[in-house]
Write a protein that binds this DNA or RNA. Structure first.
Lengths: 226, 226
DNA sequence: ATTACTATTTCCCGAGTAA
DNA sequence: TTTACTCGGGAAATAGTAA
């Protein structure tokens, strides 16, 4: 992915060639980067001519350090990549509403979950989940992406009666208007193309939804979490 | 600095190819990256074979997206660069102590400066500066580097009588033992090979220094500030 | 329009070797 | 030892063109 010039420049920077002069021979450099001594020599000459490094020959020992230009070159690449990895991308999920068997509502009225959701999401969830069946190519992959990025954790829990499975959530925007959360329950009988959504309000009322209506979910995901 | 594969992968990521399928032709891609259409086509084939991207031809329109592998590839480069730019490097300055004309002491007893230094550095400076003349090749460049990274600002100031010049400071470790600060005064009559150091204590006493004694200053600098 | 083949040129890596 | 030249082979880029 990096040219030889790039690899050498990066290697020199990693070795501390930013702050001080590195005593390194073309032979050593070639060994480290698994290239020939000749190539190392030639590329150093080119980097020097391009003003990206400076060399000095003190007696037999040669030393190398990056110039400001050389550091700038690396910095440019760094900022490009930084932008890619630190700018959230919007992933859009699309699917159709359908009715479940009311398990969502069942779980949400269990005090443990109700309390946890309110604590972690900052709202008291309406006691019912909206089931959405994703459609179209690529949707399941996107769902996996979103699940991977889901960063709000509801821990599993057990009391003397039974155990409660955990879940992961992530905030989303439904139909471009309403703040909701997608729930990925640890134990679910739904297949991978289904997601469950909760919100502080009744989403069916809010959007006048009937089974089969299409809805969209926009999720902001940082690529570094993928 | 990036190979064509790298440039194309980065471009696709920048265009949002992480989260969704991009509709982009080899002609457009070639234009954007200033390469030939043929090269764009060939490289896409290679990237696809390497498992870094996925393509789908929906009718005439072709779409491209990065695979997890492709994103991982970029992430590796990103983490290498991140390490380089976010790991502080230690810059070592070396020089000989000499006596000035007492201006350091003069300025440090001016209440404005005394107060400012204490506020910004977190210690009450001993009323006197230690003057150090840097020696050896590369030292002046290092000094410039350190000055550029100096991030503690003492603002200039004026009252009815006169104006007080500003300064920039940076923390350093003298002789590997004592926490000090290097002062880069805006107005100084010293040449570039001289730095002035202050500390909460009398450094001359602490290290039993006499004129001509050698001292070192270690400064931690984040490469991103250079 | 589009992608991608084949042919040609250009460029770059590394072997041999001088200094 | 060290760096860096010349040069031959091969990879990689573009041109031409088919589908």
């Amino acid at each position: 992915m990096l040219t030889i010039k790039g690899r050498i420049l990066l290697f020199l920077a990693e070795q501390g060639g930013i702050a001080r002069e590195l005593p390194i021979s073309t032979v050593k450099l070639a060994e480290e980067l698994k290239i020939s001594q000749q190539t190392a020599s030639r590329v150093l000459i080119e980097l020097e001519r391009a003003g990206l490094i400076e060399r000095a020959g003190i007696g037999r020992k040669h030393v190398i350090k990056l110039t400001e230009e050389g550091l700038k070159e690396l910095l440019e690449m760094y900022t490009s990549l930084k932008r890619v990895f630190e700018t959230p991308v919007e992933v859009e999920l699309e699917g159709y509403v359908f009715s479940g068997l009311g398990e969502g509502a069942y779980y949400l009225q269990i005090p443990y979950y109700a309390r946890k959701f309110e604590e972690k999401l900052g709202f008291k969830p309406y006691p019912g989940t909206l089931n959405i069946r994703l459609t179209g190519r690529d949707q399941v992959l996107r769902r996996l992406m979103v699940e991977k990025a889901a960063d709000i954790e509801i821990e599993s829990f057990s009391d003397e009666r039974r155990s409660y499975g955990g879940a992961k959530c992530i905030r989303a925007l439904m139909n471009g208007e309403e703040e909701v959360a997608i729930i990925f329950a640890e134990r679910t009988h739904y297949p991978k193309e289904v997601v469950e959504v909760i919100a502080p309000i009744c989403l069916r009322e809010r959007f006048k939804l009937r089974d089969g209506d299409k809805v969209t979910l926009k999720v902001r995901v940082s690529p570094i979490n993928l």
